[in-house]
Amino acid sequence: MKLASSCARAAPRVSQGVVDEQWRVPGGDRGWPAFDSDHRLVRLLDAAPTVAAYPEGASRRIWEGHTFAELPLTTT
């Protein structure tokens, strides 16, 4: 069985320092556009951070409008 290349490669690890540097910027300008529901651009924190369309858009559209039933959170 041959795995697809995207499944076979290990995901790069992003250090907490990179996340802190990208997220906590004085003055509020993080260097990428603010999220809006028309374009759905997000910051992908990867080995080389980029701005791209939300990567799970197909999944979001499949579940859009679906209402999930409540789950019991207690045990007896």
Rank of each mutant, 00 (worst) to 15 (best):
A8Q: 10
D29W: 01
E21Y: 09
A47Q: 07
F68K: 10
D46Y: 06
G57C: 06
R60L: 13
T67I: 08
L45Q: 07
V25T: 03
K2L: 11
S15I: 00
S6M: 06
P49Q: 03
C7V: 08
Q22W: 04
P72R: 13
G27T: 01
V19P: 00
A58F: 07
I62T: 14
R30L: 06
W63G: 07
R43Q: 06
V19F: 07
A34M: 10
T50S: 10
P33W: 05
D36R: 05
P72K: 15
L73S: 14
R40I: 00
S37T: 09
M1S: 09
T74W: 13
G17Y: 01
P49R: 03
V19T: 04
A69T: 08
T50P: 00
T74R: 11
D36W: 05
P72W: 05
G17H: 06
L44H: 06
R61V: 05
G17S: 05
T74C: 13
A47N: 07
Q22I: 06
R13T: 13
C7T: 10
P33F: 03
A47P: 04
V18N: 02
A11K: 08
S15K: 07
R60W: 15
G57I: 06
L41N: 03
P12L: 01
D20L: 07
Q22Y: 07
F68Y: 10
R30T: 05
A11L: 10
S15E: 05
P55Y: 02
V51A: 01
R30D: 03
L41M: 13
G17C: 01
R24Y: 07
S37D: 13
T75M: 12
F68I: 06
R9S: 10
D46F: 02
Y54C: 06
P26N: 01
D36H: 03
W32P: 03
L71P: 02
R13G: 04
G28C: 02
A47E: 12
L45F: 08
S15R: 07
E56L: 15
R30K: 11
L3I: 04
D20H: 06
M1N: 10
V25W: 04
F35L: 06
G57Q: 15
D20T: 05
F68M: 09
S15P: 00
G17P: 00
L3A: 13
V18I: 08
A58N: 14
I62M: 10
S59E: 07
H66V: 15
C7N: 15
E70K: 11
V51P: 00
A8D: 08
G28L: 01
A10S: 14
G31E: 00
D46A: 08
